[in-house]
Design a binder for these strands. Structure first.
Length: 261
DNA sequence: ATGGCCTGTTACACAGGA
């Protein structure tokens, strides 16, 4: 089973990139983030022609997640509240960042973790609060099903190896100690980074800033991840980053990461 | 050249991203 994650930075702008990539890489499930479109306007037809069905959870202009799969996923739900209840979630579901479904008894969670804007900002506090709620959410799902895959755009580089130049990045969004600790606390549920099962060295990235010719110079960050529960971590065969789409004209600033179970 | 971008909106700059 192959599952990929890709922040496409607008599905309507990136439709040919995603269709072309799926044709060349017929994964079982493609998890999308930053679709930036309401559900009624999600471009389902191009994917149907390729044999994919879409489960979508979007909003106007910002955020938005979707699951594309060959076989329809089971037990699809959107947002934290579907698992935790409205009272425990508050306003955290106003932004559409969470969708999950099951394939062959594997629970797949697709996340778009808040960016956080700047350390100490209101959005940064939101990011930390969101990660705290994520832990409760995943804890419930794990109790229901020990085969859990959590993937998406985490907007956090957990390790200095995941940043082209980590110097001074402890005061930078995506690498600050507080948000790293918040993610580590989530992973303490027993989730491990699929990519690091196979690759130890740094220099492998999934996002490059549009500015400063970052991609050409490989000034990137690895912030898109697949985290696996023990039963799936043992099962994982490979985890790779495909930089091909990032080389195209008008690319997303992220590129797909694929795990094979 | 060591860097100066991209998307959606009811827009003719701005917010947000990372």
């Amino acid at each position: 089973m192959q599952i990929a994650t890709w922040n496409v930075n607008s599905i309507r702008t990136r439709i040919t990139h995603v269709v072309d990539w799926l044709r060349d890489n017929p994964v079982d499930v493609l998890c999308l983030q930053e679709t930036k479109v309401i559900d009624n306007d999600f471009p389902r037809e191009p994917f149907q022609e390729l044999g994919y069905v879409a489960a979508v959870h979007g909003q106007k202009s910002y955020n938005g997640v979707a699951l594309l799969s060959r076989d329809p996923l089971e037990s699809v739900s959107c947002g934290f509240a579907a698992v935790l209840g409205k009272d425990a979630v508050g306003d955290l579901d106003d932004q559409k960042r969470v969708i999950t479904g099951c394939l062959e008894n594997v629970r797949i969670v697709n996340l778009y973790v808040p960016n956080g804007s700047a350390i100490g900002s209101e959005k940064y506090a939101y990011k930390l609060r969101w990660l705290s709620t994520l832990k409760h959410y995943l804890e419930v799902l794990l109790a229901e099903n020990p085969a859990l895959l959590v993937c998406g755009d985490f907007n956090i580089a957990l390790d200095d190896r995941d940043i082209y130049n980590p110097d001074g990045k402890d005061t930078h969004i995506m690498a600050s100690p507080e948000e790293r600790a918040a993610l580590r606390d989530v992973l303490a549920l027993g989730l491990k980074d699929a990519f690091r099962k196979f690759t130890d060295e740094g220099g492998h990235f999934s996002w490059w800033d549009y500015r400063a010719a970052s991609f050409r110079r490989n000034l990137g960050w690895r912030i898109d991840h697949h985290y696996l529960s023990p039963v799936l971590y043992d099962r994982a065969q490979r985890c790779t980053i495909d930089t091909t789409p990032r080389q195209r004209e008008k690319p997303s600033d992220h590129t797909p990461v694929i795990v094979e179970l």
